[in-house]
Amino acid sequence: MDTNELKDKIFAFVEAAKGKKKLKEKDIIKGVSADTGVDKDTVKKALREMIDVGRLMYSYGGGASSVEIPSEEYLREKGLIK
């Protein structure tokens, strides 16, 4: 699978859980790997690239870390949108 396509799948996976379940990084890697058949290391690498550019972000709440879609506020603060 093409990396961009994989990233879209990852994004869709996170979006689907929004407001329902806090996803750990591992949940995403496991879930997307199972859905797409792409090996976990590749999914992890793609996920990391998305976090590095602010397409996804690490979050913290309820005593645990998770991965989420960034808010506009976050993107503005990081200078990723105006």
């Binding site: 590095d52 602010g54 979050s59």
Partner: peptide, 10 residues
């Protein structure tokens, strides 16, 4: 604690 950090780090 809320959601803050530096880009790329969690």
């Amino acid at each position: 604690g809320g959601i803050v950090g530096v880009l790329g780090y969690g």
